[in-house]
């Protein structure tokens, strides 16, 4: 009943034999050891498990690993390049967009999805884009500021951008 899947995660190719019922988030964490993607509610509510699949944000607790076969996944581990933080990560640092940090990987990936589609979002658009990501510490204010900071940074230095 197992199935062999081949996919790229953060630019690297993997081939594994998995059970059909294995969720993508468990594949990333338990099979690949990429524990940056978090599990919180496990019921498609909180957004902590958000990753990019074929260029769009998805909840990896609501997708089977076998469905990702042949696809391209980006997790929070794939954001920084050559040891340099992504502008979004830098923004969360500069604007103190986290307290406990548990929701942060999901917040970053949802923010990436937003900035790919809308490089210059208003605070209201940022809040709307992050409505599927729950944070119990910050009250969201600093998260919105962090995403704005990243958008400015990426406009000023397009090379730091989201497209890779």
């Amino acid at each position: 009943m197992t199935r062999i899947i081949t996919l790229r995660v953060n630019g690297k190719s993997y081939e594994n034999e998995v059970s059909p019922r294995l969720l993508l988030v468990h594949y990333l964490r338990d099979v690949l050891g990429l524990t940056g993607t978090h599990i919180a509610c496990d019921t498609s509510q909180c957004g902590a498990c958000t990753v990019m699949f074929n260029g769009e944000s998805v909840k990896s607790c609501t997708m089977l690993a076998v469905q990702a076969d042949g696809g391209e996944v980006k997790t929070v581990e794939g954001l920084a390049t050559n040891g340099k933080l992504h502008p979004l990560q830098q923004g969360f640092w500069e604007k103190h967009g986290l307290q406990c940090g548990f929701c942060t990987p999901g917040m970053l990936m949802s923010s990436l999805n937003l900035l790919q589609r809308n490089p210059d979002p208003t605070p209201d658009e940022i809040r709307h884009a992050l409505e599927g990501n729950l944070c119990r510490c910050t009250g969201y204010q600093n998260i919105v500021a962090a995403v704005q900071w990243a958008a400015q940074e990426m406009k000023a230095k397009p090379a730091a951008g989201v497209a890779e």
Binding site: S44, V58, T62, N113, H128, A129, G132
Partner: peptide
Amino acid sequence: LLGASPQLRNM
């Protein structure tokens, strides 16, 4: 756009 969230609407 008033339903679910972006990640869910992508799926």
